[in-house]
Design a protein around this nucleic acid. Structure first.
Length: 286
DNA sequence: ACCTGATCCTGAGAGC
DNA sequence: TGCTCTCAGGATCAGG
């Protein structure tokens, strides 16, 4: 599943291969892929036609493409299984091709949104004065954003009456952290996922934020170098996950710090992986 | 106002 | 072999 570093790789690919091109025709092949566009697929296609794509931008796991000479942007989210591909027009359709955007030039490539589980999608929205699609105005900056406000995040964390992993996944506090990187950052910080945020000393919170950034940057270094062709792709295949995960997906395997078997616990209809020795459960569990 | 937990989807893989 | 069951998860939003 694409996490923030993979989405950033996609953004760079879009900037290189799609920005500056003018939309000729859009084909919506599955209504669920444009469900956030309430006016529907036909309207989505009609509104894109003839507009030139501006510089690709990203916040957390959201991507957007401003349309030049308008106050609107194409907003994209890859969800669980989405891919944005720049393919030759002659390439056969992918099995789960949902949206096709053709361009008014002679490059003979097109942009394709492919998504098996259809948690992701594209839509068109007005921009806020900040140049952000209005429907993601509530999404906090991500920790790799130079303008991310560390002090404000630490304060908000302290005020919340919730648990630390839940806070890491709260898009209004910090964006772009998914289940995998949350578990990885907590393992590095030796924090249990159910630790109440209110009891977290400030130095531990600072350390946690640092580990979130470290995990993301490490993945970005790996994934960011593999992109070098006429192919915008993301499928969690940076190679980083196989080699470098310390907690996520390692149930019953020894903790790389202390050798204790990693445990998996059901959590919010998914799983949390942790070392029961390095990451002690809080005394009072809500 | 804040917090919780159900929900959308489809294919891989396990178990029988 | 083929069927059924479980699991994966981001982000939203109803309901407490």
């Amino acid at each position: 599943m694409p996490e923030l570093p993979e989405v950033e790789v996609v953004r760079r690919g879009l900037e290189r291969w799609v920005s500056g091109r003018t939309v000729a025709e859009t084909e919506v092949l599955h209504p669920r892929a444009v469900r956030r566009h309430t006016a529907g697929g036909e309207d989505f296609a009609a509104q894109l036609k003839g507009h030139t794509i501006g510089t690709a931008r990203r916040r957390g796991k959201y991507l957007w493409l401003p349309l030049a000479d308008t106050d609107a942007s194409i907003l994209g989210h890859l969800g669980m299984s989405g891919q944005l591909l720049v393919q030759p027009e002659s390439a056969p359709d992918e099995k789960h091709l949902r949206i096709r955007i053709r361009f008014a030039d002679t490059l003979a490539t097109e942009l394709r949104f492919v998504d098996q589980r259809t948690f992701g999608g594209l839509s068109l929205h007005e921009n806020t004065p900040d140049g952000l699609p209005d429907v993601i105005a509530h999404i906090a900056r991500d920790p790799l954003d130079p303008a991310f406000d560390d002090a404000a995040f630490l304060t908000a964390l302290k005020l919340r009456r919730t648990t630390v992993k839940r806070a890491l996944l709260d898009q209004s506090l910090i964006s772009g952290v998914g289940n995998i990187y949350a578990d990885e950052a907590l393992w590095r910080s030796r924090l249990h996922y159910e630790r109440p945020t209110a009891t977290l000393p400030r130095p531990r919170a600072i350390e946690l934020l640092g580990h979130v950034r470290d995990v993301m940057n490490a993945a970005l270094d790996v994934g960011g170098t593999s992109f070098d062709s006429l192919y915008v792709n993301v499928n969690g295949e940076s190679g980083y996950f196989d080699r470098s995960l310390d907690a996520y997906g390692r149930e019953d395997e020894p903790c790389r710090r202390c050798g204790t078997p990693i445990r998996r616990r059901p959590w919010m209809n998914r799983s949390s992986y942790f070392c029961p020795r390095c990451q002690r459960a809080p005394r009072v569990v809500s």
